[in-house]
Design a protein around this nucleic acid. Structure first.
Lengths: 337, 337
DNA sequence: CAGAAAAATGTAAGGGTTTTCAATACCGCG
DNA sequence: CGCGGTATTGAAAACCCTTACATTTTTCTG
């Protein structure tokens, strides 16, 4: 059985084209690769042969010859598509421009599948690896640093200082937000601490802590969703049915919605009694009622930039900066006063 | 520059292993591929050499030799990740089991990028193509049928009858739903007709029409969002601020939310004045308030099955059925009486 | 128009596997 | 011990390309 089922037509290779055009295969190769040494006349003949035979270069053979595959592996947390939508779009659009293919992998955060993925990346000879790591622990990520694979961390700071990273400075965002509230004398502030997204959440906690410290106070306000809790919505519901706070900060829209729903159901008015801020905006933060106050995050750019950096890395360019922080904008809506 | 940056260690290939183990490369190949003709003793020696050298087979070379890449291309509509989350999960999990890699492509519905994608698929020698096609027009899909690529349509019926398809029988779902309402004497029913998802929407319209016809009535109730409308939320808002209906059927959660928000803002009570049903459930249909009545759709299974079928296709098994319809369950929540 | 330089093209050696077919090693038996 | 046969192993072609280097053709100079 040949490629593509039982098609029995003989394959058309660079040889067929060469024969058809009456040149050597080297010349055909040069035409394909847009080398400018080929005479205009010959080039035309070859191109006609290519069209006539419907020849398409075999990327696998090219990959073998060139020792690169123009494909890069993308690893995202299992079940994350609903919130990394735009990131992936940015990534894919940029990949398309540079003719890279994206091989998609998911890893369940918590279960250390990194070794398995690395294995695959090495076998498949992907040229590089982009890791969307807002849900992976330092330990999981550490696994990656043993390998000499061009890598970009996307969505968070890289701990091992070898790889590039592009992310939003959530630490600063939260710092500014919390400071503002502390200035107003509001200090009953909690951060929803979802242990399934440790790296990102740690930034939030850090930002909040700093702000508190600077105001001579100690930050202790986190609601920790234990790692083994399956239904975090239920967990939060349960908590907020019995606890009140002045300001609740969440990372994901779904958590903000859980908090808001629960408060409303328990006659806690939003924003009068409790204010809620979601760190990352999503298409739903604006569709939900009340509209959820959040930071507006350039997700598309995040993905696009990560891919751009990857291409630079792969083309051998020296990438001087290791950390790329993208800006965010705070947008107060209806869940804050 | 070698594979993976400036690592200068000589590559370890099947030759290195052969040398290390004192056998020929053919034997190493046999060990790798778990051929059972190799003597136990030799096999052990080879395996030790593999471990010692850290050898990983080069999938590119294998691909060339075997004329297959164990990778399959997945095409999804641009910007669809927020709603095909689970489908992709099912697909990837299954792909992992069968050791297939997924190459991810997006195509903007409406702009005919299929040719470009086909080109890529052929160049990259992906073994097959899975098309999530709830947003592609028949014309776009037609392009694909010219090529002898093993293909599975996911999320919708295939028009060209060559390829397999796995989908939810939305037509029947809507038929049943509408019939139920008509039986109750409710006939001011509209379907949100988003021209950006023609194939799926057409099924809805068909299902509704049938039900009406059977009741001796003519169905004319669609609110068509023109293709050139960017912000469909706004469009729907505008419409529902000035029009009332007894039952509104939408395909996506975001459309249902738009309708509900607008109705509420215009003092149209839900579900008392207007009922709303969303065809596909999502994590948000249950988080939104009021909870949105919807069909519960086995999205994960949809993806998993598509991939399973693909593996069957590729292993040369005869796939007798062409159409795989998956079941759905209707779940009345708070937007219906 | 010869000869040198430049331009265009061709030859052949990889790149790392799989697999067919041939060669060798090993077995049991007479 | 020799033979037929089977179990292992090896040699080499094939998969389809790129590219350094060699060769041929073209162009230019005097």
């Amino acid at each position: 059985m040949g490629q593509y089922g039982n098609v029995e037509k003989k394959r058309v290779t660079i040889y067929s084209v060469a024969k058809e055009a009456g040149v050597s295969l080297a010349t055909v190769s040069r035409v394909i690769n847009e080398s400018d040494v080929v005479k205009e006349n010959t080039k035309k003949r070859v191109q006609e042969a290519i069209v006539k035979l419907g020849y398409k270069p075999n990327a696998v053979a090219q990959g073998l010859a060139l020792k690169k595959t123009t494909s890069i592996a993308l690893v995202v947390p299992d079940g994350s598509f609903n919130y990394i939508d735009k990131v992936i779009n940015g990534l894919l659009d940029t990949a398309k421009i540079y003719k890279y293919n994206i091989i998609l992998h998911t890893a369940t955060a918590g279960i250390n599948e990194m070794n398995e993925i690395i294995d695959n990346v090495i076998k498949s000879r992907a040229d590089g690896l982009i890791l969307y790591n807002d849900a992976f622990s330092a330990k999981e990520i550490e696994t990656l640093n043993h390998f000499q694979i061009p890598m970009v961390y996307l969505g968070n700071k890289s701990e091992g200082d070898t790889a590039c990273c592009v992310y939003i400075d959530y630490e600063k965002a939260v710092y500014e937000l919390v400071s503002r509230y502390l200035d107003k004398g509001i200090d009953d502030i909690v951060v929803i601490d979802d242990r399934k997204n440790p790296t990102s959440i740690d930034l939030l906690l850090k930002g909040a802590s700093e702000a508190f410290e600077e105001h001579g106070k100690r930050f202790g306000g986190f609601v920790t969703i234990p790692e083994d809790v399956h239904n975090s919505y239920e967990y939060l519901s349960n908590y907020f049915a019995h606890n009140r706070h002045q300001l609740v900060i969440t990372y994901r829209d779904s958590q903000a919605i859980a908090v808001i729903n629960t408060c409303t159901e328990n006659n806690i008015r939003i924003p009068e009694d409790t204010e809620v801020v979601c760190i990352k905006d999503s298409r739903y933060t604006d569709m939900f009622r009340p509209r959820i106050s959040s930071f507006i995050v350039p997700s598309y750019d995040l993905g696009a930039l990560a891919m751009r950096i990857m291409t630079k890395l792969l083309s051998g360019d020296i990438v001087r900066d290791k950390e790329f922080k993208l800006n965010y904008v705070y947008k107060a809506k209806e869940t804050t006063k």
